[in-house]
Design a protein around this nucleic acid. Structure first.
Lengths: 345, 345
DNA sequence: CCCAATTCCGTTATCGTTTGCGAATCAGTT
DNA sequence: AACTGATTCGCAAACGATAACGGAATTGGG
């Protein structure tokens, strides 16, 4: 595997080029205080010697690593994968690299990862989609690196920067679509209510929509899944075989929503004629099933991109006008619901 | 954002604990050569002072960063997301972190990213899914860090470690399934033939299967897409409206395959009765459409995991018995083809 | 109770850069 | 020719750890 005799350092280049290491450092870093002819000579010997600056040493000396940490629940989920792509694109644009960590939403793992990232001296940290507990806040407070939350927020810390959408309102809007279609028997396939990021607020939105329209919240029309396809399939099967089955389902993420559609079809019901289904997130899958899934289009890529951009502002001490941003979402109404229109929220 | 007065170093801890920094370093690194009582005292003052070891300084001194670089085409693709999850899990298990970079399969970007990762002194490098050119080989050769390829291989460098599957054979097997179903008009929706990783070999497998069974390769039954859903939809529409339309389609990835199914349905054809479809990869989507998609199950997670494991062996100088591994794939026959059976290859 | 073998632990040299400070060079003005 | 203000550039001190080396303390056997 091509062992090079020894690593060549800035000092070697300096000696070879007949200048000091300070000068080499200057040309490497684009410092203008170096005569063009000198710069040229240095650049030349750098090329000839195949010198590659050591970013670790640079990091020690400059106290900057141009690296940011990203803690994410699960990269293999379409939602977070897309979000990460937004992060990485902006990071790349600003010449940062990202250290990616999967937390599986386990608190202990999250804390451990954050600790590790801080040890690695990341210039900033992006924390996605987990609940922010007191222990998180302790670590955050004990560090001076900027930290921004994405696709989540901290309901206890008013000042913690974040980028996400208004989950409650979006869920309310989605439910309202079904109500306005004329449905009065609307089921919910939700997530764990202990999940303060998705499960609870989306349930809350569903509840508020019903209340506002004077519809009762009936427990037998509510099932809580685990966000996965089969969970949606199973839950819908239960809901739709009931005596007085709902004629519409609000499913709080697309993967489960597609499961719900298939459950309906398996039971011989037509979507949307017999049962309307609306999902949430607008992952690519929503566009790759028949009937096309109506859903709440969450700007996943943008959440990542905006969060990363915000982080760069913190890292470079740029002025910040808005450090807590709620991005717009869109209702993407397709074939799994009756009406067709598009709203913005 | 909680500015701490000043960073506390190993030296501060040493002074506070009444020992030398060497001793502190020893307890931090779990070196056994330190008396239990001393260790306890040091650990205590570490806790009290909130000392956090600086991994950058450690990296400089020890020449190890416990970080590996991962260059991947696109994290937002289900295939690579799952693969990355495998990588990260194993990395985490061995206490490595990963720096993730999206290359979009652009050669220049790949080279730039690899260069950056080497500057950051990663202990190892995982290169996924792009073509390995001479320029890649140049950089690889000029560095002493172990590099392993995943989901690709280097056909010019016999010794470069890799982990992938036998693309040609798998494509051949998939095509053969259709032949054995009795089809003799089998279309292909492929990728760019200039793609040496997926496009070409999977086309090659299709071709070989036909040849072996004495079937002609007819150009009008071949379309080349871009791996995306809509491309599959469009290509299938063209293929299936022809005068003498194929009765079966081998589609070289699942996303396009699902598009093909929808195209068939849009044309009023039933799958699999009127047209059989078999895909490739077995992304979650294959399991979330109706009819369920027959496909070649590629062990994406395992490719990542095994590649990362192999890399750890290189990084820790463990003995290596096999440095080029072809993982097993499986034919996952479901409802989009007629026969039902499972083979291994 | 002494000496050798262990165990512990401190000294010090590095690791490869960045960076503040001051010296040296160079023009342009008088 | 002397003076001044920029430009350039070198020196050397950090940056925060690791690790080789050797000295001191502890232990055990005879």
């Amino acid at each position: 595997m091509g062992k090079k005799k020894e690593t060549i350092t800035i000092y070697d280049v300096a000696r070879e080029a007949g200048v000091s290491m300070a000068t080499v450092s200057r040309v490497v870093n684009g410092n203008p205080n170096v005569k063009p002819v000198t710069r040229k000579k240095v650049l030349e010997t750098i090329r000839n010697m195949g010198y590659r600056p050591n970013a670790v040493a640079r990091g020690l000396a400059s106290k900057k690593t141009t690296t940011v940490g990203v803690v994410i629940p699960d990269i293999s989920s379409a939602f977070f994968a897309e979000l990460t792509r937004g992060i990485e694109d902006i990071a790349n644009m600003y010449h940062y690299n990202i250290i990616l960590c999967n937390s599986d939403l386990k608190k202990e793992k999250e804390l451990r990862l954050i600790e590790t990232l801080l040890e690695k001296q990341v210039d900033g940290l992006l924390f996605l989609g987990g609940e922010v507990t007191d222990e998180h806040r302790d670590i955050f407070a004990g560090s001076s690196v900027p930290i921004v939350l994405a696709a989540t927020y901290d309901d206890e810390d008013e000042s913690r920067p974040y980028v996400t959408i208004d989950q409650v309102q979006a869920a309310k809007d989605a439910t309202s679509v079904l109500i306005e279609e004329g449905h009065d028997k609307i089921g919910l396939i939700g997530g764990p209510l202990t999940d303060p990021i998705l499960g609870y607020p989306r349930y809350q939105g569903y509840k508020e929509a019903l209340e506002e329209k004077g519809l009762p919240l009936r427990e037998e029309w509510v099932r809580l899944g685990d966000y996965r396809y089969h969970s949606g399939l199973q839950s819908a099967k239960e809901l739709l075989t009931g005596d007085e089955a709902p004629t519409a389902l609000f499913v709080i993420n697309d993967e489960m929503a597609v499961g719900a559609i298939h459950a309906a079809q398996d039971l011989g019901k037509k979507v949307p004629d017999d049962v309307s289904v609306i999902g949430f997130d607008n992952i690519p899958l929503a566009d790759q099933v028949r009937p096309l899934l109506s859903t709440v289009a969450v700007p996943m890529y943008d959440i990542g991109a905006v969060a990363m951009r915000l982080l760069t502002k913190y890292m470079n001490d740029e002025p910040i006008q808005e450090n807590q941003v709620l991005l717009e979402y869109r209702l993407e109404l397709a074939d799994s619901t009756l009406t067709k229109e598009t709203q913005t929220g």
